[in-house]
Design a binder for these strands. Sequence first.
DNA 1: TAAATTTGAAACCAAAAGGTTGCATAAATA
DNA 2: TATTTATGCAACCTTTTGGTTTCAAATTTA
Lengths: 111, 111
Amino acid sequence: MRRDVFQAIADPTRREILGMIAHKSLNINAVTEQFDVSRAAIYKHMKILSECGLLEIRQKGRERYCEGKFERLNEVSDWVAQYRQFWEARLDSLEDYLEQLKKEKYGKSSE
Amino acid sequence: MRRDVFQAIADPTRREILGMIAHKSLNINAVTEQFDVSRAAIYKHMKILSECGLLEIRQKGRERYCEGKFERLNEVSDWVAQYRQFWEARLDSLEDYLEQLKKEKYGKSSE
DNA sequence: TAAATTTGAAACCAAAAGGTTGCATAAATA
DNA sequence: TATTTATGCAACCTTTTGGTTTCAAATTTA
């Protein structure tokens, strides 16, 4: 079966899951609570994500805490980047965005 | 049927098609020649891409030339960007990359 | 220890995805 | 005009996807 990052993030439920665990590790039941589908369905989604390296699992007793591993998204990022020049005329605005990112990362001064 | 950019770029054949038409418009037969599958299969892929706004078609006599429209990739770009801070520690290298992009765009001086 | 909780995974199902062949139509050409 | 070329699309098929129910195993907890 095909198992790559592009396919992994194609599913909206899986993108939501990644959003949920970005800031906080959650076990499978905790993730399941946020959706209308069964635990087994969520389990399968998370298995796909973990097989793609987009999440990692830490066993803790009978629970398994899942945390996002977003490094692999650089494959997507790189792929998109090669086309950026075709649509993003204003590279300066990207620079602005980058500045903003750095501010966020290295301490927000005024908020 | 679900029809969004994430799903559109999930298929490797469609990503290849986008790569082919990025620099040069091609008609459907010309695209088909590059693959092992039938014209009908390629036609379906291109239909999906056009329904997602990732390519546009210019009729020219009996031929239809397809050109890439990459603006819609910013949806993917934005989605990935929100996680960049989780994996990209070296924002400076992104700045370098940006510089390189600008050089490419505004004229390469020495090559 | 007995019961409850958390999970993994098998078996199964319906729908979607990706492919095919075949045919119709419109445009270009011999 | 008859033929070739380029395409749209229907009908059909197989595999994959995303979901379900069910059961077993391991860990807590009463």
